[in-house]
């Protein structure tokens, strides 16, 4: 492998070409569940990451925001998150990001329009207190949840359903702070972040990271990585060992070659000026020229 070699075949065509061909030129198996509209196009849809697509823990000053995704019935999408799934995600987030908050920080729980019963609220509070975090405030747009939270002794703020809970993202399209995750992402784990994601650990097959910015993996990348999911094709995917199921940058897709290489090196995946995803050894990688002009 010399510099700038592609160890991944890149089946996605330039934009003009791919819009006419519904079939990709190579035996690329498409991601079967396109995030929003079903298209026969070979290119992945650009993904907008709404605040509430998964459980999020967000440090803000000396407090910590815990944001829950909406209920199944409340969202327009038919597939919402059940309490069980919310709980799994919550626990995963807690264990992956343990080092990122001060002990005894106050937690602000953003429930949104989700219904929480007494037991669920208690479970969250217990789990947080195990990590020396204190649940203080509950923000909800549902009267029932507000009553439950108030009875349990938390400060409650009830908002109208229309008012968005976290304002900044609706106003600012810019990216958020990088998300640092220290864990092995096992099959079924998905991380979505409106910014750069750093993973200290492996991405096992069946896991995925979808980021608006770059994706850095200090470990093996064997799952799916989608960098620049809002359309920035200058985003990069970097891994110590790059053997992904599939990588995507902006609206370009590439999959791993049928025969894996014998040796792995730290590598960088980027979109070349020829509008295809290319892989370079980290030691040889230089940003493409067109990027410098920008």
């Amino acid at each position: 492998m010399t510099s700038d070699t592609s160890s991944i075949s890149t089946p996605s065509d330039p934009p003009e070409a791919s819009s006419t061909s519904s079939e990709p030129p190579m035996d690329l198996s498409l991601p079967s569940s396109s995030p929003s509209e079903p298209t026969s196009d070979a290119r992945p849809n650009l993904i907008d990451i709404p605040e509430n697509l998964q459980v999020r823990l967000k440090p803000e000053g000396d407090k910590l925001l815990l944001i829950l995704p909406p209920d199944a019935e409340q969202t327009k999408s038919p597939i919402g998150f059940s309490w069980n799934e919310v709980w799994q995600q919550f626990k995963q987030q807690l264990s992956a990001r343990e080092r990122f908050w001060q002990p005894n920080s106050a937690v602000y729980l953003m429930v949104g329009d989700r219904l929480l019963d007494n037991r669920q609220l208690q479970a969250i509070a217990d789990e947080l207190s195990d990590l020396q975090l204190q649940l203080r405030w509950v923000y909800t747009s549902r009267r029932q949840t507000a009553v439950v939270a108030a009875t349990a002794g938390y400060s409650v703020e009830q908002q109208t359903a229309a008012a968005p809970i976290a304002k900044p993202t609706t106003a600012a399209p810019s990216m958020e702070e990088p998300l640092y995750v220290q864990m092995t992402l096992r099959s079924g784990t998905e991380i979505r972040h409106n910014g750069t994601v750093v993973v200290l650990g492996d991405l096992n097959p069946g896991s995925s990271v979808i980021a608006a910015g770059d994706i850095l993996v200090w470990g093996r990348l064997r799952g799916v990585a989608h960098a620049g999911c809002k359309g920035d094709s200058r985003c990069l995917i970097l891994a110590l060992q790059l053997e992904p199921t599939q990588i995507r940058i902006a609206d370009f897709v590439a999959r791993a070659p049928e025969t894996p290489p014998a040796h792995y090196h730290p590598e960088v995946a980027y979109v070349s000026p020829k509008r295809t995803i290319r892989i370079a050894r980290a030691s040889d990688f230089q940003r493409p020229e067109w990027e410098n002009q920008a």
Binding site: Q88, K91, Q92, S95, L185, R186, S187, G188, N204, P205
Partner: peptide, 15 residues
């Protein structure tokens, strides 16, 4: 192995 990996993740999330 893939399913086992998923299950390990779920177990870890369930303490």
């Amino acid at each position: 192995v893939r399913d086992a990996d998923r299950v390990i993740g779920l177990l870890e999330a369930n303490n």
